[in-house]
């Protein structure tokens, strides 16, 4: 007799929401990766609760997977951050926008006329 399953869902959901807020709103690449970690943690919690709810060990096995993924993701993600920091001297995601092509006002106006 612990708690109803729904309460665990609410906990995991709230944790996930915090994680995504961190990943989306913080202006720092390290915090973005940290937010992803929080989200993975929320997933682990709900997997374990599910395993207990249906008395199946599959959920626990999956948590091992999540751990491995998290480790790998942190290793590569942080290596990427270091790499990017070396090249640009910044970890603010707003500086990594070279994919974005800002159209000029005249281009836009010409496009609307077409």
């Amino acid at each position: 007799m612990i708690v109803p399953f729904g309460h665990v869902i609410v906990l995991a959901g709230a944790l996930f929401l915090l994680g995504i807020t961190c990943a989306v709103c913080r202006r720092n690449l390290i915090m973005v990766v940290l937010g992803v970690e929080i989200m993975l943690n929320a997933a682990s919690i709900i997997f374990l609760a599910g395993a207990l709810r249906w008395f199946s060990m599959e959920g626990q096995v999956f948590v091992v997977m999540v751990l491995a993924i998290a480790a790998t993701e942190v290793a590569i993600g942080l290596a990427l951050i270091v790499y990017a920091y070396r090249r640009t001297g910044s970890v603010d995601p707003i500086n990594f926008n070279c994919l974005n092509e800002q159209p000029t006002g005249s281009q836009l106006a010409g496009f609307i006329r077409e």
Partner: peptide, 24 residues
């Protein structure tokens, strides 16, 4: 997201089941 999550947690009949203690 929160609204959807709460609604799912409330309406889902699986969510009402109370967890029993067990150890693997």
């Amino acid at each position: 997201y929160a609204v959807v999550g709460v609604l799912v947690a409330v309406t889902d009949p699986a969510g009402r089941a109370v967890l029993e203690t067990a150890v693997a």
